[in-house]
């Protein structure tokens, strides 16, 4: 009788261990993802319609910078007169990524020597149409680029 009871007890002890251990682990497995979910991610905003293209000091007049806009490339340029402009950096000819050429103040595609002026208009070479233009805002030191709403 004595023996049986102690056996019983150890069996119940084991079950209770399983229950408390399993319960605690599950609670952890539920609470941990929830807490991580609550912590805001590094990028505080959904990124599809606006993106920080760079800082003011990164783009002196007559220069340009490629930035990432989702999975596409964008180009931020500052015209020789100091104005900010941003375009899709995807060349309208064969979708290469364009760049800014300070020597001629053109946006230029290296693949087939296509030229666009600082307004994104195709002016020479094979590009059939202008680059898609984005809207540029300056927020403090940051330059924010947004898709134009049609």
């Amino acid at each position: 009788m004595e023996q049986k009871s102690s056996q019983h007890l150890s069996r119940r002890g084991f079950i209770n261990l399983l229950l408390s251990g399993g319960g605690a682990a599950l609670l952890g497995a539920i609470v941990y993802p929830m807490l991580r979910f609550l912590i805001p991610p590094k990028l505080p905003e959904a990124t599809s319609s606006t993106v920080v293209a760079g800082n003011l000091d990164e783009v002196p007049p007559n220069s340009g910078k490629i930035f990432r806009f989702g999975d596409k490339a964008g180009i931020l340029i500052r015209t020789p007169t100091g104005e900010f402009k941003a375009f899709s950096a995807t060349c309208t000819h064969l979708s290469c990524t364009v760049q800014y050429r300070s020597d001629i103040s053109h946006i230029w595609c290296a693949c087939h020597n296509g030229h666009y002026d600082v307004n994104g208009k195709n002016i020479s070479g094979p590009p059939p149409r202008p680059l898609e233009e984005f809207t540029v805002f300056v927020r403090g030191k940051e330059i924010v680029v947004a898709k134009k709403i049609a």
Binding site: T47, D71, A73, T97, C111
Partner: peptide, 21 residues
């Protein structure tokens, strides 16, 4: 999320087009 990788992939694809030229 592979947006960044796709962006970089596009840059590599540019070089194919450059070579074709």
């Amino acid at each position: 999320d592979v947006a960044k990788a796709k962006f970089e992939l596009n840059l590599a694809k540019d070089d194919v087009i450059k070579i074709q030229s």
